[in-house]
Design a protein around this nucleic acid. Structure first.
Ligand code: MN
Ligand code: MN
Ligand code: ZN
Ligand code: ZN
Lengths: 147, 147
DNA sequence: TCCAACTTTAGAACTATTCCAAATACCACC
DNA sequence: GGTGGTATTTGGAATAGTTCTAAAGTTGGA
């Protein structure tokens, strides 16, 4: 089962109804490796659903988050929440200049997660591992701009 | 040099002035192991500085963050930014019910950080490692409440 | 097909955070 | 130890991301 189907199944399992808008949102989340904000999803889908409301995007994202199908990563320096459709343990790298977030596979992240599970009394529901800085492109621009 | 002095030094190094309000904010950040929000700091210090403004707290926190002396951890399920005065690599554990954040020392976190530095082309400025779930207390309450 | 329940929509409401300009206070320099 | 230039504080207004609301539209089980 691919990610798109996983997301839809998560909705159905919760007794939620499948609407064209929700399908589109899940497809977008599944088929891109971006970590979009609600507004970015909204802007992208507006072409396809001219009448779509931002509230619908938030609504669907909230459901997916509450089911644990996606993660809220938080801000990338832009004061808006970015969402991650990949709930497998991995490192996220945010650029505080262009506000893009990429994934970084990690050998140690699994051990980290196990450490948390073992050494805390918490019932762990999820996590966000995010480092931030300047991406190569934005570093270059910073140098060029400073000449 | 203790954490309080480190924070004040960070401000001075930036050519910032030391005010009683800033001292109090730095002392609060240094002497508690909490991960307070701007509002919590404001409420705590209001007794000591009845005329203090929320804007002052935000102002000081922003300066400290921009210098890298403290970290912005993001929300603990309460839609407000929590700050971390400890910039040494460690795991943070947030309870999404009572919105408290605690620290969890980690053996693997150092390796994770090195992994990021080595495998990415980013200029890394900081990071936040935060797992969330239910703390022991809130788990207990959840069970009792369900009876 | 039918309909109760759920979802979408548009816009208002909410609230954390930022901005602003006037009053105040720090501190480098004398 | 005083002064003055300038950064900081303050309180309130402004901003913007997110949530709420109620009317209109859909979904999917019966
Ligand atoms: Mn990711
Ligand atoms: Mn911490
Ligand atoms: Zn960038
Ligand atoms: Zn708790």
């Amino acid at each position: 089962m691919n990610l798109y189907e996983t997301l839809l199944t998560a909705l159905k399992t919760q007794g939620k109804r499948i609407t064209p808008q929700r399908e589109a949102i899940c497809r977008l989340l599944a088929e891109s490796d971006e970590h979009p904000t609600a507004r970015q999803i909204y802007e992208t889908l507006k072409a396809q659903f001219p009448s779509m409301s931002l509230a619908t995007v938030y609504n669907t994202l909230d459901v997916l988050v509450s089911v644990g199908a996606i993660n809220r990563l938080g801000s990338a320096g832009d004061d808006t929440v970015h969402y991650d459709a990949d709930t497998n343990p991995h490192i996220n790298l945010a650029c505080i200049k262009c506000h893009r977030i990429i994934d970084l596979p990690s050998e140690h992240i699994q051990a980290l997660q196990e450490e948390v599970a073992r050494n805390s009394q918490y019932r762990i529901l999820g996590g966000r591992v995010l480092y931030y800085g300047l991406c190569p492109e934005c570093q270059r621009e910073a140098v060029e701009g400073g000449r």
